[in-house]
Simulated scan of single mutants.
Amino acid sequence: MIKPIIGILGNTYKTTPAKFSSSKREYVNSDYVEAVLNNGGMPIAVPSVSMLDDPESALSFCDGILVPGGEDVSPWYYGEEPSPGIQTIRPEIDEAWMAAGRYALEKKIPMLGICKGIQFLNVLCGGTLYQDLYLQREGSILHMQSLERSYLFHHVDIRKDTYLAGILGEGKHAVNSMHHQAVRELGRNLTVSAVAPDGTVEAIESSDGQIVAVQWHPEGLIHTAPEMNKLFADLVRRSEAYHNR
């Protein structure tokens, strides 16, 4: 049986100058690749330059899409100027992902968003973000842990009767946390499916089942919190159904 193809949206970095100078590279984190592969999908890195140039050709072979973590989303996409708390913005990456996201929405390709991915998908659907939780949301707990992504850091509460509850179960779950931005106003056709103890949105989903997105990094927890594999297995199932539609 052919595995469903999961396109992982790519990012770029520039290597440190050395003997043969530096070069720009397209990449996806290996944790995403492992998580998709171990749960029945075939992961494919989708270069940002190809998404920007021709999103249809870049994604037409994908049965599902994983929108990974990354730098901050430009506030221009939700009608704001940058606040003092905003960090690195990559306009070329945002524009490439926006082109890919618009195509995916139009074609109803199943998507799983992670960290920046939840923020990006909310903005793609017309929502807004807290540019910095600690400056804009009073009473926030710490959402930026140190050291390993495999560490569990705080809890989230998954709401009853949500799609996410069907995947992981309702109630309290321990997660990792590496972000300073978060969903503020929800985008179109999206609902909140999990929150942190301080009320910060930790997961969203779309009413049609196309989008599932979490603020934590489940790809870093597939060994220390094996239940997180279910998020990737669900993406693979949704992608298989999309392929066979």
Rank of each mutant, 00 (worst) to 15 (best):
D161G: 05
P110M: 05
T15W: 06
L235Q: 04
I211P: 14
A225M: 11
A241V: 13
V123R: 03
Q136P: 05
E92L: 11
N176M: 02
M1L: 09
Y78L: 01
L112G: 00
I5P: 02
E148G: 10
G69M: 12
K160Q: 13
P75G: 01
V175T: 14
E205Q: 00
T200F: 07
N39T: 15
F120P: 09
D72L: 02
H154L: 09
D54Q: 02
I89L: 08
S60W: 03
S193F: 07
M51I: 08
V46C: 09
E170L: 01
L168C: 03
G7N: 07
A45Q: 10
V192G: 11
I114K: 01
E148N: 14
Y77S: 03
R188W: 10
T191F: 09
V195A: 10
G117M: 07
N189K: 12
Q131C: 02
M98H: 08
I118H: 10
P17N: 05
K108H: 13
Q145F: 13
P197C: 05
Y27M: 04
L221M: 15
H180Y: 07
M98L: 15
L168P: 09
G199N: 12
L186C: 07
E26Y: 09
V49L: 14
E81A: 06
A194F: 08
G101S: 08
C125A: 15
V195K: 14
Y242H: 14
A182E: 08
R159M: 11
H217A: 06
I167H: 00
V175A: 04
D208S: 05
G127R: 00
D234Y: 13
P84H: 09
K160I: 06
L37C: 05
P68D: 00
G85D: 04
G7K: 09
I222F: 07
